[in-house]
């Protein structure tokens, strides 16, 4: 199914999830069309294995459909919920250790051009709001010192705590904490500045 080109992943409405929870088939299909690519990219980034990423996505969407997991509107946006759910499940699998070997052998360099050409259908993840957010976060991340960017990536995509990162990088824990905190503050400021620019005067 091809979604509305202006329908953005980053702005999925709580009402859509509500319709999914009520068992509406079309709503579920639309939710997948909107969020599938982003969540698959995230799962693949963490797991480094396409089969595992696809398996994880199947598990998550089925749980959403069966209402085994529930969205709480009071605790964030729908996409924040979906991203957190996917990220946590992927890290769970990563830490379970069953796919480490596969990850090494099938590691993808963050999605090569060839991979994208083979998999990516047109119309996914290309709404203007999503593209704008992508441009913004990439620019903000590029402006971070490499040590800060590395600390963020190790925590978020490898599921490591600051103590784990500290021992892997042979750096004091406080240094790692400070790097993460500073990086997050800079990213937050970048997002806030963009929001302020978009607010009509």
């Amino acid at each position: 199914m091809r979604q509305d080109p202006e329908q953005a992943v980053s702005t999925i409405e709580p009402a859509l999830l509500s319709r999914v929870m009520k068992g509406e088939h079309q709503a579920f299909s639309l939710l997948y069309d909107l969020s599938g690519t982003l969540l698959y990219s995230l799962a693949l980034k963490i797991l480094g294995n396409r089969e595992e990423a696809a398996d994880l996505l199947q598990e998550i969407y089925l749980e959403i459909r069966k209402k085994s997991v529930r969205y709480d509107v009071g605790r964030g946006t729908p996409i924040a919920w979906l991203i957190t759910l996917t990220r946590n499940r992927a890290v769970d699998r990563l830490r379970a250790g069953s796919i480490r070997a596969k990850r090494r052998s099938a590691d993808l360099p963050n999605g090569s051009t060839a991979e994208r050409a083979a998999d990516q259908p047109s119309g996914s993840f290309d709404a203007r709001a999503d593209q704008e957010l992508r441009r913004l976060i990439l620019a903000a991340a590029a402006g971070l010192p490499s040590a800060q960017r590395e600390a963020i990536e190790m925590a978020y995509y490898a599921g490591l705590s600051y103590a784990d990162i500290s021992s892997r990088l042979n750096q004091p824990p406080e240094t790692v904490k400070t790097r993460i905190k500073l990086a997050m503050i800079k990213l937050r400021e970048a997002l806030q500045k963009d929001e302020e620019r978009n607010i009509p005067s």
Binding site: L38, T77, L136
Partner: peptide, 11 residues
């Protein structure tokens, strides 16, 4: 939430 939007897109 914004971080994954910076990933290379793989459908």
């Amino acid at each position: 939430t914004a971080l994954p939007f910076g990933l290379d897109v793989v459908s």
